[in-house]
Write a protein that binds this DNA or RNA. Structure first.
Lengths: 353, 353
DNA sequence: TACGGTAATGAGAGCGTTTGCATGCTAAGG
DNA sequence: CCTTAGCATGCAAACGCTCTCATTACCGTA
């Protein structure tokens, strides 16, 4: 019994008439202890309500059983599914998760990294490929293993799990072009410090350049990821001289905003204008019309990154032979929000080319 | 430099030519150290990239700087806002948060409590007033302070933050009655182990009993909190002999499901049927028509519970004089989904009374 | 110059666990 | 009956930090 009145290993040992070593083993490696001993120790533990002291454990074993994840934002569901499956996978090994958000700001990411390390993270999951050099340095000095997710364009020396944002956007854009659209606008998240957003825009441009020409892009609006921002961006696009017949949005949240605003302005989707999203979060099928979007391998990424990170943490010889990079495929989900070009607008727009 | 190659306090002390005590103070109570000393220590820390070892700190100080929160579900946004403000408030004091979910199952809650304690939580935030006796016992044996939220109907000896679910539902129902509705159906979450859901149903009944009679309730459907469940519940209600003119839903998620299904079936809301929600999450204004609902003091609860919990953790003399219970007001948000009773149905329904 | 008081620092004893190594015991084989 | 392998257990040294208490340094005042 320590000064706080909380039971300790020593109390258990004394009461069970064994050494602390045996009690410790009984907790951490039950198979190393004789059945009989184990039972009597467990009885004592139950009786006096002993819980191992976290700090003592962490100090002696140099492990906390906690890992951290830093995602850009929790405000919308973009990362929720992946984080959930990440968490579930960890939970199977009794590892807990602490989530922080960076707000798409590398400085804040660095802060979160420090904070998570200070809070005892055994390993970290980070979003995207780019970060401050200082962040990488901190990670290395603290000797914390980490995995990056959400983008496969990654330094080969690092451990990463993701998909090809650029390629996915490319495919989606091809579908849009196939529907006959020639005046295309983009509503993107802020590109600064966001390699995923940059890649998506690049993918759109790739597709357009390949099949037609750059002039097809009427405008690119950069804004924050929120429904309201999507609404405002829509207004902006519709106030331009050249209005688009299709709007490709950086994610489903922006697309939802655009769709809602279209409805408010009595602009029919997809009759008058087509709108596409990215991510395929729940929202995509809640709005009407349901969004054509890109399904991102959230569950797969969550699981794969958890497995990778746990291997890294356990360390040992097998690290050398580990796969350093997992790349997933994406899938285009064609739904109601993408349709053919409206005739009248189609003609109008042709004048410009 | 320890065996892992990670820098320790001793390394810093040696390099800065001071004792470990001074370095420790410099980190934890900078004002107790001379400016000059502090600067030189900080320089060394920066140079060798020292991060305090979590385990050592936790062991010596008997604090982890982490608290846990257990909410019933993360699958929808019901608890998100409160948790976020809880977290933000904690963050100001450099306390981190670990969230677990119980799935509305008391056994799972117990498991999560144990898990969070095992992971070093300094304190806990729990949802609702009811739980297993064993859970309370575990909490006490581990000497972990905790606060309950979301329901103010609470044992006075405990620390709680919440609002009166019953009263809120009562007010909302009054509004529904004021619009002339006399055939009212309820779609509730499962009542078992959910004091909030129970209270909301009781509040509805209170209002109806007070102003009219029980017979006005055409049906009560219990189901899980999901959009799909809301849809199915709606179908169930509409297949009854007596159909309602208003559906009061246990939360916005269920109400959203009902609304979506109504739209699918070409039943106009609120023209043919009124629907109300509870919680006022984002979803409530995303669906159309926007939901009439109850605004729950999520931000307030989050902040208040964080403050209360932190006081409890710091302990000291002021605990005795602490306020043990904070109760917030709710607000009825009248939006499009609630309207007058359609004439034809009104007449039909009158026949039954 | 001596002295008291205060601010800054140092010494060192824990904090509760884990774990490598030593020891003791049991059972099987010679 | 003695050896020996192998399993179960105990001993005790870390692990890295905090914090109390003691000590030193410095200043102003008598």
């Amino acid at each position: 019994m320590n000064t706080n009145g909380r039971a300790t290993l020593i109390d258990v040992a004394r009461k069970a008439k064994v050494s602390t070593a045996t009690v410790s083993r009984c907790l951490s490696h039950p198979d190393k202890v004789a059945e009989k001993t184990r039972l009597s120790i467990e009885a004592v533990i139950d009786e006096i309500g002993y819980t191992p002291h976290f700090g003592g454990r962490a100090l002696a074993s140099n492990r906390t059983g906690m890992v951290g994840a830093i995602i850009p934002t929790m405000e919308n569901a973009i990362f929720a599914t992946a984080i959930q499956s990440f968490q579930e996978t960890l939970a199977k090994s009794e590892i807990s998760l602490q989530v922080g958000s960076s707000g798409y700001d590398p400085e804040k990411e660095l802060f979160q990294v420090k904070s998570l390390i200070a809070h005892g993270a055994d390993g970290l999951l980070l979003t995207g490929a780019e970060r401050l050099q200082k962040t990488t340095k901190v990670l290395e000095q603290a000797q914390i293993p980490y995995v990056t997710a959400w983008n496969s364009k990654n330094d080969i020396s690092k451990y990463s799990v993701g998909f090809d944002n650029r390629l996915a956007a490319f495919s989606l854009t091809q579908s849009v072009l196939d529907f006959g659209h020639r005046n295309i606008a983009i509503i993107s998240g802020f590109l600064e410090n966001n390699d995923r957003a940059i890649d998506r825009v690049l993918g759109i441009k790739d597709a357009i350049e390949k099949h037609h020409n750059k002039g097809l892009i009427t405008d690119i609006v950069e804004t924050k990821y929120s429904i309201k921002a999507g609404e405002e961006a829509f207004d902006k696009l519709m106030s331009n001289t050249i209005t688009p017949t299709a709007i490709i949005c950086g994610n489903d949240v922006l697309a939802t905003g655009a769709t809602i605003r279209a409805k408010m302005r009595n602009i029919d989707v997809p009759g008058d204008i087509s709108i596409t999203g990215f991510d395929d979060i729940d929202l995509a099928t809640v709005v009407s019309p349901a969004l054509t979007t890109v399904r991102v391998p959230q569950v797969g990424m969550g699981e794969a990154s958890a497995v990778m990170l746990m291997k890294l943490i356990s360390g040992g010889a097998n690290i050398k032979s580990m796969i350093r990079r997992v790349e997933f495929k994406t899938e285009i989900m064609i739904r109601e929000s993408l349709g053919s070009v409206p005739n009248i607008m189609y003609h109008t727009s042709r004048n410009y080319f």
